[in-house]
Deep mutational scan, measured.
Amino acid sequence: MGFKLLSKLLVYLTASIMAIASPLAFSVDSSGEYPTVSEIPVGEVRLYQIADGVWSHIATQSFDGAVYPSNGLIVRDGDELLLIDTAWGAKNTAALLAEIEKQIGLPVTRAVSTHFHDDRVGGVDVLRAAGVATYASPSTRRLAEVEGNEIPTHSLEGLSSSGDAVRFGPVELFYPGAAHSTDNLIVYVPSASVLYGGCAIYELSRTSAGNVADADLAEWPTSIERIQQHYPEAQFVIPGHGLPGGLDLLKHTTNVVKAHTNRSVVE
């Protein structure tokens, strides 16, 4: 069995187990497998329904001669939608809004960016022009300005110390501490036991640490421990890039980060 097929099978099995364990909360999309990078042309966006009122959005972007996937989250909030992270750029984010209108038909009224990198804030200006209120932590807003990236308009308070959590509509926002970046936030959907790890969490097929220019490698494993301790009931975990899975993604990420750190020390 090929690795790609095995990865998709694991996603399907995880979703099936969740649907059985929580039949009222989960209505997993039966329309197909989780979209992969090879299936999404740059400039297009796919939506994948995880649970009743919960979707991931998947886009792709060219970077350094390669094409990478990027995940975000959409959560229903009454007759409105909360968006977590842009679709990595203005063109993708405009396509995301169009796809949401086509498939869901509810307005996106608020959006949260989970850290300051372009795959999370690139497209904020498109959201703002569409009347979406954009939010991020003060740290993310400051770092985005320093980096020359787009800056969300509103500040999220109460997320300055490791372990801080605040309720934001249908989700809980959690600051686990520094990891992929010093400002990275985690998003949890309690009604569906869905954990969105953003770039602080890796997919299972990833074996290298990737972009760690703004990471705190020493603190990252401790931050992941905080996530595990705060959300032990999480059933569906979405990484910032690639295929979702279960809580095993947290341990896998820790292993990859520690291996990278150990290699760096040896070198």
Rank of each mutant, 00 (worst) to 15 (best):
T93D: 00
Q235I: 15
Y68M: 05
G148R: 12
L204T: 04
H230G: 11
Y135A: 07
L13S: 04
S223F: 14
L143V: 07
H241I: 01
K102G: 10
G89N: 02
I50Q: 10
S162W: 09
E33M: 04
H252D: 09
S27G: 07
A98F: 02
R110M: 14
G163S: 04
P138F: 00
V166H: 14
D125I: 13
W55M: 03
A59W: 08
H230V: 09
Y48C: 09
S22N: 08
G131M: 15
H252G: 07
L73G: 06
L9D: 04
E101R: 07
S208H: 10
V237A: 07
D85N: 11
S31C: 11
E80T: 13
E219R: 07
P41Y: 09
G148Y: 01
L82E: 07
H154S: 07
G53I: 13
F3G: 07
S223H: 09
L249R: 04
F116W: 13
M18C: 03
G65T: 03
P176W: 01
T153Y: 15
H260Q: 02
S137N: 14
G245R: 12
A192E: 13
S155R: 02
V67Y: 10
T36M: 13
F26P: 03
Y12V: 09
G89F: 05
T261A: 06
A136G: 10
S62K: 06
S70W: 00
Q61E: 06
G2I: 12
G148V: 06
A59N: 09
V256R: 11
D183T: 00
L9G: 07
Y175S: 10
A259N: 04
S155Q: 15
D214V: 09
L243P: 02
S62H: 03
P35G: 09
K4P: 03
R46F: 08
L247S: 03
M18H: 15
D64C: 13
A129E: 11
G65C: 03
H180Y: 00
I238K: 03
D125E: 12
T109A: 05
S30Y: 08
L195H: 01
G163C: 06
V189R: 03
G169R: 07
S205C: 12
D77H: 03
Y135F: 11
G72P: 01
V132Y: 13
E150A: 06
I186H: 00
E157S: 12
S205N: 14
E39V: 11
R76I: 07
K91Y: 12
S193W: 10
A218E: 09
V75M: 10
K258Y: 00
V42Y: 05
A179L: 06
D118V: 14
N255Q: 09
S181T: 08
E44A: 09
S208K: 13
S162L: 08
A165F: 02
V11P: 06
N71C: 10
Q49N: 06
Q61V: 09
M18R: 06
G158S: 07
A25M: 03
A21G: 08
L127M: 03
N149C: 03
V54L: 04
G43H: 06
V54R: 03
V237K: 02
Q228I: 07
V189F: 13
H117A: 00
A19G: 08
D216N: 13
K102R: 12
L185T: 14
L81C: 06
P23E: 04
Q61M: 05
Y175L: 10
V54S: 07
D64F: 12
A90G: 12
P35I: 11
A129M: 13
W88N: 01
A209W: 13
L97F: 02
S160C: 07
Y231M: 14
G148N: 13
N92M: 14
S160P: 07
L173H: 00
E225N: 15
P138E: 15
R141E: 07
L106S: 06
L24F: 04
F174Q: 03
F63T: 12
E44K: 04
Y175I: 04
I104H: 00
I84M: 14
L73H: 00
S56Y: 02
A178K: 07
S264W: 15
I238C: 12
V126S: 15
L185M: 15
W55F: 14
G105N: 05
D64Q: 08
P244F: 12
A165D: 14
V256D: 14
L97C: 06
G148C: 10
A215N: 05
D85S: 03
S137I: 05
S7Y: 05
N262E: 06
V108W: 00
Y202T: 02
K91A: 12
D77I: 05
G148L: 04
I186C: 14
I40K: 05
V11Y: 13
Y231W: 05
D79Y: 10
I151L: 13
D216Q: 13
E172P: 01
H180Q: 04
V42D: 12
V42H: 03
Y34F: 04
G246F: 12
D214R: 12
A59F: 02
L9W: 04
P138C: 01
V194L: 05
P69H: 06
N92Y: 01
E219Y: 01
T140L: 04
T60I: 15
Y175T: 13
T109P: 11
G32P: 14
S22M: 08
A66T: 06
R167K: 08
K4E: 09
S155A: 11
V237G: 05
V121Y: 15
I238A: 12
G123C: 02
P239I: 13
S181P: 01
A133W: 03
G43F: 02
N184P: 05
A90K: 12
G123I: 01
F116L: 07
D64E: 09
A66W: 05
F63I: 03
A209I: 12
N211T: 09
T134P: 08
Y48D: 07
S205E: 15
A51Y: 13
A19M: 04
I50G: 10
A51V: 10
D52Q: 12
H260A: 06
S191Y: 05
V124W: 01
L47T: 10
S191W: 08
K258W: 05
C199W: 02
G197I: 14
A15Q: 08
Y34N: 05
E267D: 13
R167L: 09
S162Q: 15
R226V: 13
T140V: 13
V126G: 12
G43D: 09
L217M: 05
V67E: 08
H180G: 00
N71K: 02
E233H: 10
F116A: 07
E99H: 15
V112L: 11
C199R: 02
A21C: 08
T36R: 06
A90R: 13
A218R: 13
T207Y: 04
V37K: 13
P35S: 07
N184W: 01
G131L: 14
D214C: 11
P176L: 12
E233S: 08
D52I: 02
I100V: 11
V166T: 07
P190V: 14
P23T: 14
V11N: 09
S181Q: 06
T207S: 10
V126T: 15
T134A: 12
A111S: 06
T140C: 02
S208C: 08
E225C: 09
S27L: 04
S208G: 12
V45W: 07
N92K: 10
Y12A: 12
L217N: 07
H252K: 05
S22T: 15
G210P: 13
G242A: 11
S208V: 12
T222S: 10
V257N: 00
V108C: 00
I17K: 11
A133Y: 00
T222P: 07
V112S: 01
A95L: 12
T36P: 12
H154P: 02
P244Y: 10
H115I: 00
T14K: 07
G43N: 04
W55T: 07
I58N: 02
L24T: 06
A259C: 04
A98Q: 13
L5H: 01
I201V: 09
A234W: 12
V28N: 02
T36K: 04
L185N: 13
G245N: 05
D216G: 08
H57R: 07
S137R: 04
P107Y: 05
G242N: 15
L13Q: 11
V257A: 08
D164C: 09
E233G: 05
V28Y: 15
T86K: 00
G197L: 07
G65E: 03
E150G: 03
D214K: 06
L9T: 12
S27N: 11
S62F: 02
Y188R: 11
S113C: 01
V124R: 13
D119Q: 01
Y12F: 04
D119A: 15
Y231K: 10
I227V: 09
T182E: 03
A218I: 07
H117P: 00
A90F: 15
P239V: 11
V256W: 13
I238Y: 05
G245P: 04
P41F: 07
V265T: 11
W55Q: 05
E157W: 14
A215D: 12
D77V: 05
E39Q: 01
S139F: 15
I20D: 03
K102D: 15
